[in-house]
Every structure is written in structure tokens, then in C-alpha cells.
């Protein structure tokens, strides 16, 4: 299974997303990391180009709802069906909002790496 990990928007906090990338690789996933400050369009392009099975968006600056809405729009526009998730500083109240805008799942800071690995494994078996 190939996972694209992405940093949308201007937020430069990348310690968490890189830690997760190492963890997913150790668990046997193939990981592609976009690097910082990518537009939603670029991220979706990369996911298609690299044939990613899932996309993880890492957002810590508080712009998660705005970026999720755009992600939802771009995915619909391009008629894509790749599951995408959001991780980062997510207030509990925003989790249902993110899921309503099309995110398959939201992992707030403090989530265990093992939890996230297990989630991706369930996505993998669904495929």
C-alpha cells in the first residue's frame, strides 16, 4: 500500500509528519512525502502521478477546515476516490466537521503511531 503524506498550506511544522513517515515505512508501507507548502492541487496531482492508495494531510496552523473543504472540492472535480485523512492540531469539535467535508478520518496530535498504522491496515484490507 502506498501512502502520500502531505503538508498543505504555509505551516512549516513537519516533525510529526516525518515521524509518522518513518513509522509507516517501518510497518511495511510505501511512503511518499510531498515536502512543505504544497497547494491542494499539487498534492492531488502527486497522489495521482505516484498512484497513492491514500493521502494524509498534516496541518498544525489551524487552517484544517479551509484546506479540507478545498481538498473535498478538488477530489470531486477530478472524480477521484482516494481516501484522505487529516492529522495535526485538530480540536475535538472539528473532527466530525472534517469527516463531513470528506475526510475518511482525523487524527489529532497525541494519536499513537500504532493506531494510525492499524487504520491504514484496515483501509488496505478493504481494497
Amino acid at each position: 500500500m502506498k501512502i502520500l503524506l502531505a503538508k498543505p498550506g504555509l505551516d512549516g511544522h513537519d516533525v510529526g509528519v516525518k515521524v509518522l513517515a518513518h513509522g509507516l515505512k517501518d510497518a511495511g508501507f510505501e511512503v511518499v512525502y510531498t515536502g512543505l507548502r504544497k497547494s491542494i492541487e499539487t498534492i492531488v496531482d502527486m497522489a495521482v502521478e505516484r498512484q497513492a492508495d491514500a493521502i494524509g494531510l498534516s496541518i498544525l496552523s489551524g487552517t484544517h477546515l479551509i484546506l479540507a473543504e478545498r481538498m473535498n472540492g478538488v477530489m470531486a472535480e477530478r472524480k477521484l476516490d482516494i481516501p484522505w485523512l487529516v492529522g495535526g492540531n485538530i480540536p475535538v469539535l472539528d473532527v466530525p466537521k472534517l469527516e463531513a467535508s470528506g475526510a475518511a478520518k482525523a487524527f489529532p496530535t497525541g494519536s499513537k503511531i500504532q493506531e494510525i498504522i492499524e487504520y491504514f491496515e484496515t483501509l488496505n484490507t478493504k481494497k
Binding site: 516533525v15 516525518k18 515521524v19 518513518h22 513509522g23 499513537k112 503511531i113 500504532q114
Partner: peptide, 13 residues
């Protein structure tokens, strides 16, 4: 440093 951050986090987890 990112590898160390991962090892540190795994150490905690």
C-alpha cells in the same frame, strides 16, 4: 534529526 525524532517518539510510545 528526523530519524532521532522518530526514535524518541517510539521510545515514549
Amino acid at each position: 534529526v528526523s530519524k532521532q525524532a522518530y526514535q524518541r517518539e517510539m521510545g515514549f510510545q
